[in-house]
Design a protein around this nucleic acid. Sequence first.
DNA 1: GTCACGCCGGCAAGGTTTTGCGGTGACCGC
DNA 2: GCGGTCACCGCAAAACCTTGCCGGCGTGAC
Lengths: 349, 349
Amino acid sequence: MSGLAEIARAAGVSISTVSRVLNRRAGVNEETRQRVLSVLSEMPYTPRGLGALQRTGVIGLLVPELSNPVFPAFAEALEVRAARLGYSSLLCNTRATGSAAMGEEEYVRMLLARGVEGMVFVSPEITNVEVPLGRAPRPSYYAKLLADGVRMVFVNGATPSLDVPDVTVDEQHAGYAATRHLVELGHRRIGFVSGPARSLPSRLKRAGWSAALEEDGLPAGSEYVAHAPFGPEGGAAAVAALLDAVRPTAVICSSDHMAIGVLREAHRRGLAVPRDLSVVGFDDIPLASYCSPALTTLAQPIEEMATAAVDELAHRLDPDRRRRPAGNYTRVFRPRLVVRESTAPPPPS
Amino acid sequence: MSGLAEIARAAGVSISTVSRVLNRRAGVNEETRQRVLSVLSEMPYTPRGLGALQRTGVIGLLVPELSNPVFPAFAEALEVRAARLGYSSLLCNTRATGSAAMGEEEYVRMLLARGVEGMVFVSPEITNVEVPLGRAPRPSYYAKLLADGVRMVFVNGATPSLDVPDVTVDEQHAGYAATRHLVELGHRRIGFVSGPARSLPSRLKRAGWSAALEEDGLPAGSEYVAHAPFGPEGGAAAVAALLDAVRPTAVICSSDHMAIGVLREAHRRGLAVPRDLSVVGFDDIPLASYCSPALTTLAQPIEEMATAAVDELAHRLDPDRRRRPAGNYTRVFRPRLVVRESTAPPPPS
DNA sequence: GTCACGCCGGCAAGGTTTTGCGGTGACCGC
DNA sequence: GCGGTCACCGCAAAACCTTGCCGGCGTGAC
């Protein structure tokens, strides 16, 4: 029952004025315009005649960033699968750097207004346990979307409290398997080059890492963990801190992207990988096998995950089978250890 | 002047029927419904009530692929600039692999139907001189868009015959500068690891390459050029062919992405870079400085180019200054030689 | 052959949005 | 203080879309 009249009443202006705001016509005071727009964002306005846009064949893909190649890889895999199912994809980069950049929530609004039928969130904002001030999605943000009937699927966005289907790698197992690999090679001082502390995936990997270490009574204290921003620079900084402090003979990393920075920092210090330092990455980005040395890493099954995510979304979009037996909405994929050249037994101390 | 009447006429049905389709009411044959919908996608329908969408603040970004990190980098830079100007961006990956994937033209249609105000094409399809059969944009494709008043800007899409503003690097100069750098180091057999022959940028680089070689009377025949698909695999394959045939002491590459494959293939063959083989890339992707050895490359000024492109588009979107003095629509940026570790004088033969 | 039924067009009433026009008030120069 | 100008906004007419109703047409069943 939303119409101009209701908007007008809420904004305390006439219908004409709302219409003019909507049509960006001149003759409306900026202040009034803002008031109308703010009302409009509270109660999204869907003109009549937009019925056709209900079934648009378009879905939204939200990724946190593009500089880590794993996200373009996910985007491409999701897109290919979506195309096969007859959907076209709109990609949004939700955490683009730059002060004026838009956040996830703004993008979701925009996509909805553009008539997408559903969305796939890759590493959604909610996995930031403490989101930075001012950018925080209100607690009810995703819940509100759900209540509005927005169809969505998370990829690597584990959120037990939310009734959103989730396709995820077992991050904890990834941390565990990477660390076991190093332990079995004989390493005893194994560091963790971690992303920011607020990142849930990094926390889960850390849990796996410490579990693997404690099995053999190896040190798993916080002095063996270095947090840094995602990206090669962060990886380099984190491993530098670890090397200066506890001199690990091996490190695992939150991502291949960070691991690349680790490789670089080791090179800069004259440390040979894997002779002096073993490195394990995560994700298995396409470039991992092209590094020198080629990265040992835990592979996310990107295509399988993308397929599962898009299929689940398509399933929920299909008007015929919209209801679904309440059940396990989470699909967990096991990462796969890919041993390449960046790991070896530790140097004889 | 779009209204239900026009749609109805084009679809050969009555206004009532169109309205019923739009509102998903029963009593319309599926076949008729499809016909109306297809007309609707041809001439995007903007109900009066949709005036809000006339000025949507949304622009489309079309990139050919995401696996070469230069494209995510461009996308991010474009997006940041657009956000600063109050636009949000929708990203489309126009040449996603997979048979069912959508092409550039389909994406453009879809974006238009979703109400974008303008578009930035990065390396548009038109730069494929001979596009593969079946995917060919009809000759009039871009011209038709222009005639329809679609606002667009090309990045690296030099097309003198089309009245589209273009922001581009000087590809020919890039090829020239890279080759000169190698010539000055003393190389005399310099190969070109090129993308597909149909790629215009690769052709331009080749022109620069041969110009630089001919200045010194060095060989610039086609036996020194190896074409391969873009990507590391292509780079590896192309350099393998060159090494087997003419044994160059240095190569330049169509992209850093290909150069990474060259590095890998050299490593595989036990050739040390730069001792046995010098390599020059193009683009200066963020990872170029993290390779081992770090890549010498020609840097595209990505941020400046993105800024110029978005600003030009915004300028054309601004209703107040829509007209523009007819003039030079092309901005050419000089690539910058960044010397790192992958080039050195040739081995003493 | 007849009937039922689904589908579509025409019409008109009713609702919604757009837009031309005029009123109001702020501001400015005199 | 006065009149003029201008931006801004509401009124109301016009334009447009939705929807119910009915009739025509073709198809297929009986």
